[in-house]
């Protein structure tokens, strides 16, 4: 768990503080996303957690220990760090780049080599092909996979990620996000993730922290924030399409009608969706089949009917709350 208490930071030559009396808690094993417009202080906050930036005021605790009293390089070796521009060392091979922190920690060579191969495999880069390549030989997406692998090398309990997927094209970005979420299912790290992209925040985050001008505006789960934005700033950040953004987050079972008659419903797979799928997937099915209804199933068992009218009613209900 990471706790920031009354943190302030002012950069010389800038009138407004970058971070202003901010307190927040990042829960263990969760992905907390810091989101806000550029200049809101999100990157500064992230860099204070590994002391690349020192706060002017306030204290930061990791698992109850005050990190401002720790040796910065030693602290950083226990925190994974991924940045947008990746920052691989251009004169070292991919293998050497990944083994950077284990090397600093003095791991035995064999243990490091094993870990490098394991991480390359986990991030979908075959070790025999990539281990001895140099960073200039990689595409943007591959480089960022290596960046993530490097951050994970010494198995740090905490990961700081500063817009890690912002520099790659949208298709690769989606791919990297999905992969990242899949990996996080296994590794369960405490992750602080910075982004300016609210859609990414909603997709990735277990917990969102919305920031503006160095202050915390609202924090909560994506659903809480989408359904109850606390002020106009949050609403405008989420955008007018928050109704449809929610469809990505709620499961089909949440909007289906379990009492609907299931008889004479076509038996083919095309009009069935799984209860745990997001509603958006059901919408895609409807459009593809040109129907207004799909059958929601738990494994093979029919559980209810999800209809276009049901979805529409839900969107109206959410959007209507604001008026």
């Amino acid at each position: 768990m990471i706790q920031l208490e009354h943190i302030s930071k002012r950069f010389s030559g800038v009138a407004r503080p970058a971070v202003d009396q901010l307190s927040l808690t990042v829960e263990k094993g969760k992905i907390s996303v810091f989101v806000g417009p550029s200049g809101c202080g999100k990157t500064t906050i992230l860099r204070m957690i590994n002391r690349l930036v020192e706060p002017d005021e306030g204290t930061i605790f990791i698992d109850g220990k005050n990190i401002l009293q720790m040796n910065p390089p030693l602290l950083r070796r226990t925190i994974g760090y991924v940045i947008q521009q990746v920052g691989l060392l251009p004169h070292r091979t991919i293998g050497q780049n990944i083994s950077l922190v284990p090397e600093l920690l003095g791991w035995p060579r064999e243990k490091t080599a094993r870990k490098v191969r394991e991480l390359l495999e986990m991030t979908g880069l075959p070790p025999e092909e990539f281990e001895s390549k140099y960073p200039y030989q990689l595409s943007g997406g591959q480089a960022q996979r290596v960046g993530v692998a490097r951050a994970l090398a010494a198995d740090p309990p905490i990961m700081l990620m500063d817009e890690p997927f912002a520099a790659v094209d949208p298709i690769i970005r989606m791919h990297l996000q999905d992969e990242f979420l899949r990996v996080q299912q296994h590794i369960r790290k405490t992750i602080c993730f910075v982004t300016h992209d609210i859609s990414e925040a909603i997709k990735i985050g277990d917990h969102l922290v919305i920031l503006n001008e160095g202050r915390l505006v609202q924090s909560g789960t994506p659903i809480e924030i989408l359904t109850h934005p606390s002020n106009d700033f949050v609403s405008s950040l989420i955008g007018d399409d928050r109704g449809s953004k929610i469809l990505d987050l709620i499961r089909c079972e949440g909007l289906m009608d379990p009492q609907a008659p299931l008889v004479d419903f076509p038996k083919d797979n095309g009009s069935r969706v799984q209860a745990v799928w997001p509603v958006k997937a059901a919408l895609e099915r409807m459009m593809k089949n040109n129907t207004d209804e799909v059958m929601v199933c738990r494994e093979d068992q029919p559980a209810g009917i999800l209809s276009w009218n049901g979805i529409k009613a839900h969107i109206n209900r959410i959007s209507g709350e604001k008026q």
Partner: peptide, 26 residues
Amino acid sequence: PEDVRDAALGMGMTPVDVLLRVELPL
């Protein structure tokens, strides 16, 4: 590149490490 320096520091290299193992070789 600033990002290389930043990442090297962020990984836990000391400033001397960064000079001898990153900045000078490059």
